[in-house]
Each structure stands twice: as structure tokens, then as C-alpha cells.
Nucleic acid binder design. Sequence first.
DNA 1: AAAACAATATGAGATATCTCATATTTTGAG
DNA 2: CTCAAAATATGAGATATCTCATATTGTTTT
Lengths: 223, 223
Amino acid sequence: MEVYKAEKKRLYLEKHSIAHLLSFPIEEFIEVHEYKRDEWIIQEGMRPDFLFYVIEGKAKIYVTHQNGKVSLINFINANEYIGEMELLNDVYYTKGIQASTKTVCFALPFYRYRSQLLEDAKFLRELTRFLSGKATFMAAKYSQSLAFPLENRLADFILQTADEGIYKEKHVTVCDYLGVSYRHLLHVLTQFCEKGYLQKEGRNYQIKQFGSLNELAGVMKNN
Amino acid sequence: MEVYKAEKKRLYLEKHSIAHLLSFPIEEFIEVHEYKRDEWIIQEGMRPDFLFYVIEGKAKIYVTHQNGKVSLINFINANEYIGEMELLNDVYYTKGIQASTKTVCFALPFYRYRSQLLEDAKFLRELTRFLSGKATFMAAKYSQSLAFPLENRLADFILQTADEGIYKEKHVTVCDYLGVSYRHLLHVLTQFCEKGYLQKEGRNYQIKQFGSLNELAGVMKNN
DNA sequence: AAAACAATATGAGATATCTCATATTTTGAG
DNA sequence: CTCAAAATATGAGATATCTCATATTGTTTT
């Protein structure tokens, strides 16, 4: 983890103003942190000392169960918060947060800003929107995971993560995210290939039938 | 649905003050609604016109999937909000909310109070805590549903809902909540009886081995 | 009280998903 | 460049869970 100083810090603060997120100045005690790919931003079970706001990069929220299974609960992208649960709740089991690409965040020390933040309507309104989105998203994922087999959830995931028609996520990560075994994921991917939805190209998969995948993903959406 | 008027309304407002939830008076336009058991407080897909705050009773959040499966996403209890998602988000798929007992709530009309509420730090702080709890709870349920078989989740549910050692939830409701088929639920309940954890008594089940159930439920908890 | 409906029950076969074993390939650290 | 660790692959048998069919009982509605 690297803490940006002086000029480098000033540059980031200037370029990525967060004035619209709060109504008081935070320049004085804010820090700018950079985490490398795979580095842990927060260790599971350890309360953080900062409220983070992600400027660039992407991170993953992990929780480890007693039976050894690991769940990738969700991804965190730019313009999202990390550590907001700990800011709000004195008692909370802290999940692990791992950078999945180089990630730069603003870090506001709790000890300095906590009470001010909790009084600031502008900040709270933003946070409230963020949390409502998070709760809604988790509820959707939850009910979908129970109501649909992997086939549908994987189709959705492929469409969401594919870049220019090429799907190339790591199987291991996807297993944790969709909550299925490695074996089963491979099995369904093979089926998709056999049905002609995908075509394997080395490590990647090329989407051949958007329509079919869309249909599989579509049945999960209401509205 | 019944709207309390005059004296009856005054009584409720007096007895269940919500002054600690906001910093401005709402007596003038607030309504007090009573819903009967099984009545729909909000219809799925239809935006509500009120922010509700539950005073007494219990309700259920339902969503219907295209494949016909119904998920009982969560229960709502006294001192919780209903309609907060719609207050915050202009675009949101509204879930169905059904009273599972007689339920009384305060109803704040959006058109009257929305902007005031969104400016009020006290209200927002409370809502933020509520939402963070909701998001955390859904995340936990989600990851547990993927990481553990019904056996564990059912043990947890039985312990949480049993009253004086007697479990008597409706199977149909539990299926929707735990996301399993009726058949499978019965199957696992039968196993619990065979193993001596429970003992069937007519429609109810008496808990015989708290220890065993606790163990099954316990492996899902971190912290 | 009869009819219609919701909830409980149980059997049996199908399918989704898991575990374990083992082999090959790729990647990162020294 | 080498070795160990991580990621990919594949087979085969086990288990969790589902679907469908059908019966019984309890609860509303007429």
C-alpha cells in the first residue's frame, strides 16, 4: 500500500473532487491510498480506521465461512464506499476487501471525521442512496440464487463481464462469486459450448449466441 | 385497510412517538393505517405513495419471478421502514409487502414530506443505520444460502422462530423463505425427527436437542 | 352442510450440484 | 531458469434438491 504525498496527492484531490459528497472540507486529514492488485485493503475481521471512497480500480468483498468455503459477496467499483458499515455500526463483522486491480481511494480517518459525517445531510443522503442500492442488489442476488440454477445466473454473469464478446473471467473467482463448485462451473460452461452459445478459444470463451444467453439471463429479471 | 381518525389516531401518535426519528413535526399529514393479516400493504410492481414506519405487527417482503417461483425475501418487524427504497430511488422495482399479522403503521405521504426528509440529518442517519443493517443481513443470507445446505439454514431458522421450544411455522411460508421445495423441506424435517433433534406433535415440532440444532446453525456464523 | 381451497403428507424418479482423485498447464518467486 | 504454487481440466460416484403425482386433512365460502 502506498500513501500519496504532496504533489501527487494534491493532483488526485484536484482531479477527483468529492465536494458533491459532503458539505465540509476534508482536505486537511484525508489520505490518498493506492493498493496493488491482490493486496488487501481491509483484512477480514479487522475493523478499519478509515472510510474509503474508491477513485479508480476495482475490489472484491470476501467472507470466509467456518466450513472453509469462501464467498465473493460482491465487487466494489469506482465511486463506491468501503468501510461505511464500520462507520455506522459499532458492532459489525468486518469482511475482507481485496483489490482486484490497482486501486486508488480517498481515506477519511474515522477518529477525525466520524461525528461530522454523521451530522452531514449531504453525506448521509448520498450514503443512503448507496446503501439502498447495495441492499436491493443483495436481495436480488439472494432471491435469484435460490430460484434459478447456475445456467441462468452464469449466462447473466457472462453477459455482464464479457468485453467485446469475449468472456475471460477466472474460473476460481467466478466459483466464489456464484457460489458453485469449480467442477460444476466447468460442466455448465462445457454445456454452453456444446449448445453453441460459446466457443472456447484457449483460456477465453467467445460468445456466439447472444440471444440464447440473453434469454437465459432474462428470465431472472422482473420489471 | 383501515385509516385511524380523530381520537384513535391521536392516541397512537401519542403512545408511539417518532420524534427521535426526525427533527420536524409530521403530525399534520401523517396517517395511521391498520392492515389485517394477509392484506397487501404494497402490491408488487406498484409504487407506494407513502413512507411507512411499522408500529406493531409483522409483514413479509415478496418477489415473484418469471418462472413462477416466489421468494419471501425477508420479514419486516415493528420499528422498521417500508417504502424507503421508493422514497430514495426514482427507478426501483417495488416488491410486494404483505401483513402476516394485524399491522399498524404510520404513513408519511411522499408528496408532502419527501424533500424535507431528504434534508434531515436525523432522519437520514436513522435510515442509513436501518439500510446498512438490511444490506448486511441480505449479504449474510446470500452467502449462507450458497455455502450451506438446508440442514444448517433450517436449524438456524427453527431456533430463531421457535417459541418456548415449539416450532410451528407454516411449511409453505418457510419454503419461500429458505428457497427450497416443499418436498425437500419435509424431507429434512423428517430427518431431524429421526435423529431425535425434533419430535413431531400434530402440526408442531418440539425441540428435543437444542445442542444439535445450535451446532448446525453455529457453523454458519463467523465472528 | 357442501363445495372449494389451502396446507399437510408421502412416494419415486430426475437433475443440479458436490466431493474427491488425479493430470496438465500457467504463473510467480527466487 | 527452476521449482512450487495456482489455475485449468476431466472422470466418476455421491448427495442435495426438484418435479410431479396423488391422498388426506383443515379452513373458508357459499
